[in-house]
Amino acid sequence: MIGVDEAENIVRERFGIDLSDTGSTHLPVLISVLSRTCCDVLELGTGKYSTPILHELCEAQKRRLFSYESNRSYYEKVKHFQTELHSVEHVKSFDQANIEQDWGLVFIDHAPAKRRVVDIERVSVYADYIVCHDTEPEPDYIYDYSETFKNFLYRWDYTKFETHTTVLSVRREWE
């Protein structure tokens, strides 16, 4: 199991990523959660850091990864990741994403903003851990996270950077 502090070092030292970049602050948590789980991974909303890293780590572990993206431009930048183990799909609406199945990790970082809580609720009983990005209090009026987060038995907030990341679970405690 990789702790978050260790994962920070991996991101900085091995991948050469600057964690002060808003789009990268979830990476230590993603890597740590990935190391604590063993089944399929779901990524809602793709990214320049999350998609490559989840792709390679899942491929190495022979785990299936499903990435859904509603923004055509973002999709064009990640569609080449498609493999037997990694499904990369463009959807007009996340209603089209079939996500009601068991997941080791679900990563929530998609748009539109209000859609995030809808999909968190959809996967809540299926996921060991749900990792949500942009969970600092200030933009809560954009995402409406706070009400939904109350429904989870376990919650852990990673607040080291300006942009926060939260781990949720109804099944497993964060240790």
Binding site: F15, K48, Y49, P52, I53, L57, K77, V78
Partner: peptide, 17 residues
């Protein structure tokens, strides 16, 4: 090799962008 692949992927994303 995995580390290098990840670094190349990130560069690729940037270049495609």
């Amino acid at each position: 090799l995995i580390d290098e692949l990840i670094i190349v992927h990130i560069k690729l994303y940037h270049v495609i962008d």
